[in-house]
Design a protein around this nucleic acid. Structure first.
Lengths: 341, 341
DNA sequence: TTGTACGCGTTATCAT
DNA sequence: ATGATAACGCGTACAA
């Protein structure tokens, strides 16, 4: 049996109330008794029981993190930032991996509810549609909820996300500056919030640059290497294949580059822009030009935000928008060579 | 205020003991009252309070996971497997990221102890030395402890790890079969358990193949892309540079390949073997030949093992060793071309 | 089979 | 400034 507040009280010859006070409101206790008690706690290696605490305080400084897929390399750096930000404030995180299974997600939510977490964070973009997110709206009535890279309107749900529309817009503009006019887009499933916005940005940028939109230049794939590879192959098989391509994720971009190399081209012939700025990936193939979502910072901001909500601070804005930035590395070049510009 | 066991008891017109029983020992309660109570619980959407429960049961079905660095891509798939295995048994995991900071690690351990986790898992290889792991030995006297990819002797510490020695051995043998005789090794810090074993395997394989060991062929770097890149540059700058190289991690391998390409070589000229078999990475550069540690399976096995320990099952062996397997893809070729074989 | 009452380790509200 | 004591919500020995 672990050592309790009572043991300390006995040994220090004070009441348990006093012991509790040196822990929670040290200013209410005389300097000397405080020192005495603290010394005993040290000696006996006392550790307050979090359950007993939680029973009264109804909080155990824990937040639940629901991540749809640990194979998505964009998430680890976000989690990293999140965890750092939370740890600084002595909060722990329950990691819940759903594999995009909605049933598993609901089970986890129940579980987290039972365990009385102080808040829940949903990581990653999600399929749109009221039905699919109804349980989150319900949840938000009971406890602080924050989404990373998605949002829900008309509910007490907070968000940290990047301006995807603008990110895609910047990327396309850059490619146009390099002289590209045939610009493809390997996107994810547009039923997911972020991919929808990216598509918007892509279209808007083309329009503003007076470039006609070609449906065949837009392909939708899974946001991983395989998808990028498949998408690239499709684009390369076109009659008038593009000379540059925006990928909706860094992993798509990598897959696309594999496809390019396999067909005997180099990044001299074919420009690729990724999306996300995942630490490792951006260094691949001697440097991937990418739209940075600042994943680590995103996580930090999420931590900061949910802590504010938990502490009851009034939030003027429910959504925090990070402005993405184009990180120019080496995967893009002026349009020339094999392709008509 | 949330709804409690007392509310249920009142509404169902039974005692709180009975309500508690339908939750914990339903066989001790008559079928009809059980149904009645369950119906009320359903209606009132009752959720047992985990704190109160934990206070008595001294367990809350939670394990703490200490990971040294979320930027190490080998970990996410392991965590994935671990989390899946744990979730199946209704266990949650506290994610603790230490950034290799021993102070942070100790703080986390205290934290986890306070929160009464049922066990703690340490992910990843660690620096050897009694001093550095003393706190883990101490910890193991208080609760179940398991290490992934490391071990401690003379303490109640369980392990799931791969036979690194054998993994390196297999890799070198394969390179020899391909005709390579000048084989470099970009290793990590040999003060870490796994890198020490890998070095052993490398040496043993050379010896068994009657190849002289050259100290200059062995370089020690950080186990990430940057390290691989730097290490490769060193090897390429040698008078008699190797024609093949074993990398102590997949991320090292990727960095090494970047170095190779930058110097104008291809994998036709220069063979590279990685280590780990991280899902994404192995697909890079049209397929990295690598020594698979089966990361997902490693995680699953860890989950299974610690649950057994928690449930008091007698474990015949404290260490579970996974035999690594060479996954042959495309980064290795017969020795030829620019380099003497 | 069911109910009463106590204890788990804290914190909070009174007194003193 | 300090102490006694009642909660917090649940599980369980004991009694009925």
């Amino acid at each position: 049996m672990a050592i309790t507040i009572r043991d300390i009280a006995k040994k220090a010859d004070v009441s348990i109330a006093t012991v509790s006070r040196v822990l929670n409101s040290p200013e209410d206790v005389s300097h000397e008794t405080k020192e005495k008690v603290e010394k005993v706690m040290e000696e006996m290696n006392y550790k307050p029981n979090a359950f007993a605490r939680g029973l009264i305080r109804r909080s155990i400084k824990t937040i639940g993190l629901i991540v749809p897929d640990l194979n998505n390399l964009f998430y680890p750096p976000v989690i990293n930032g999140l965890e750092d930000g939370l740890e600084e404030n002595d909060y722990n995180v329950f990691l819940c991996n759903t594999n995009e299974d909605i049933k598993k997600e609901k089970k986890y939510i129940d579980n987290l509810l039972n365990k009385n977490v102080d808040g829940i964070i949903f990581l990653g973009t999600r399929p749109t549609g009221f039905q699919k997110n109804k349980h989150i709206i319900e949840l938000s009535k009971e406890m602080p909820v924050l989404m990373i890279n998605d949002y829900i309107t008309g509910a007490e749900v907070y968000s940290v996300m990047t301006d995807e529309r603008n990110g895609a817009y910047k990327a396309i503009n850059y490619l146009v500056e390099l002289g590209h006019k045939r610009i493809g887009f390997i996107n994810g499933d547009v039923n997911y919030t972020t991919y929808r916005y990216k598509l918007d940005g892509y279209k808007k940028a083309l329009e503003d640059n007076n470039i006609d939109l070609r449906d065949t230049y837009i392909v939708n794939e899974t946001p991983y290497e395989k998808g990028g590879y498949k998408g690239m192959k499709k684009l390369l098989s076109l009659n008038n294949s593009p000379s540059a391509v925006l990928a909706a994720s860094d992993q798509i971009a990598i897959g696309a580059m594999n496809g390019i190399f396999e067909n005997g081209y180099s990044s001299d012939d074919f420009s690729v822009i990724g999306y996300g700025d995942v630490p490792l990936i951006s260094e691949l193939y001697s440097g991937l030009t990418t739209v940075s979502q600042f994943p680590y910072h995103t996580g930090q901001l999420a931590a900061e935000t949910i802590l504010k909500v938990i502490n009851g601070e009034k939030m003027i804005q429910k959504r925090r928008i990070i402005d993405p930035e184009l990180k120019i590395r080496k995967s893009c070049n002026k349009c020339k060579g094999h392709f008509e510009c």
